[in-house]
Computed example of a mutant assay.
Amino acid sequence: MHLLFATSIVPDGALASGYEIANAAIIAALRRAGVRVTVIGFIWPGKAPSDPENTIVLGAIDVRTESASARQKLAWLGKAMLSGLTFASVKLRAVSDSEVGAAIERAGPFDGYVLNSVQFAGAFEKLFANHPSIFVAHNVEHASARENAAAANSRFQRLLFAREARLLKTMEERLCRRACFVFTLAEEDRAALGVASDDRSAVLPLVTTATAPKPVKPRRIDYDAALIGTWTWQPNRIGLDWFLEKAVPHLRRNFRIRIAGNMPSDISSAHPGVEFVGRVPDAQAFVRGAAVIPLISTAGSGVQLKTIETFELGLPSVATSRSLRGIDHRPANCVVSDDPAAFAGALEAAAADVRDVDGSAFHRRQIKELDAAIRLGLERLGPVGQEVFA
């Protein structure tokens, strides 16, 4: 079986975001199932595809809103309003339908598409009607857009996110309706997308690495707690605001917190133990330097890759219930609380008595269930998929 994996950004091997980590896990699982996978999409400027023999690059593009100029943002907004596309999809209209169509033809004979999230599929939707498809819903995007609208600081942002929510809802409905099968990354997303029956969808348990990370013993503890993420992404920002404004004030003043990653300019904390450290050279080494990992998601859908990585590494954690979406197996050293004061108390208790566990069992279980879900989806792809496993 040969499938064309249509995605916004093709893999370059860096795994710099949760989206890229998820894509790598899904592509690897498809290949373990015996599928020939050709990836098509854009690439970050200055990067090269990690698997050039099986990748079709449409061009280099930077789709990050936070790094775009005011002129570029206005251009994207104008194109979105004129075209009726979402703001996220219109960023990818840097090439024409005919150019994308020609690139698809160059992929040679193939049996179907894997439409990876709504952004690329929405930008070139009519081109993907000529073969059966599997739709991968990384998130329930319309629900996230509604949450972003509710949390927006200005009327303009609220209106923009509300528009995105309306368009995304109809787009997700179309993609799900046309797909032979839908993969989600969290169980609750199946019902939210209207595909809860087992013959329509399955959850993909994910991993962050191909092999289980090896434990480091003894660990050197340099700070009490560590967080890392792309905090300019609105669902992540909502969780960070909750943590800094609600939970951190309950922590003792000498509790040391290090926060790494791309940070909005208006983030701050009055707590003397909080330090924003920007980009770090080694994300795993950074989190391994903490006594405990706060898992602080309070918005969004899909799965939290930072939660999966924490469990793979066997590190102690304190998690909101929203941080555990898409994960069925919680290790013994993870405490769950949605109450800010209790959350802070659990962080202090975990930092005072550090208890690592072996994360390899969690990793093996995720891989086994991921492969089973991929096989189920491929079988639903039609006669070609059924022949693969005959």
Rank of each mutant, 00 (worst) to 15 (best):
E125T: 08
S98F: 06
A150V: 05
R158I: 00
S144Y: 03
F135K: 00
R155G: 02
A149M: 07
A102G: 13
N139Q: 13
F135E: 02
A149W: 05
A123P: 14
S154M: 08
E99S: 10
A149S: 14
V100A: 03
L168Q: 10
N139C: 09
F161W: 15
I134E: 07
S98I: 12
L127W: 05
V100G: 03
A162K: 09
A123T: 12
G112Q: 09
A152I: 07
F161E: 12
N148G: 13
L159M: 15
E99M: 09
E164L: 07
A145F: 15
A165H: 11
V100P: 08
N139E: 15
L167V: 04
F124T: 01
Y113G: 07
E125K: 13
V136F: 09
R158C: 02
N153V: 03
E105S: 11
V140D: 10
A143T: 10
L127K: 06
F156M: 08
G112F: 03
S144N: 08
L127E: 02
N153Q: 14
N139G: 12
A151E: 12
R106P: 01
G108H: 04
H142I: 01
L127C: 07
R158K: 15
E125S: 14
E99Q: 15
F135N: 01
S98Y: 06
N139Y: 11
A143E: 11
N116H: 15
G101S: 12
K126Q: 11
R106M: 10
D97W: 07
E164S: 14
G108Q: 02
L160S: 08
L115F: 13
S144P: 00
I104N: 01
R158H: 12
L127V: 03
V136E: 11
H142R: 01
N153G: 15
A143F: 03
L127R: 05
A151H: 14
L167H: 02
L160D: 01
R166Y: 06
E141P: 10
R106N: 07
A123H: 10
L159C: 13
G108V: 07
A107Q: 11
Y113K: 07
E125N: 14
F110Y: 13
F120N: 02
A152L: 08
E164Y: 03
A165W: 04
K126T: 09
A152K: 11
E147T: 09
F128D: 07
R163T: 06
S98C: 06
F124I: 04
F110S: 06
A149H: 05
S98P: 01
F120H: 06
V118A: 01
N148S: 15
R106L: 13
E125F: 09
N153R: 15
K126P: 00
P109R: 12
S154D: 11
V118G: 00
A121W: 08
G112H: 09
L168C: 09
D97C: 04
H131W: 07
S98D: 15
V140T: 14
V140Y: 07
R163G: 04
V100S: 04
V136M: 11
R158F: 04
A103W: 06
A151C: 02
S144Q: 04
D97V: 00
A137N: 06
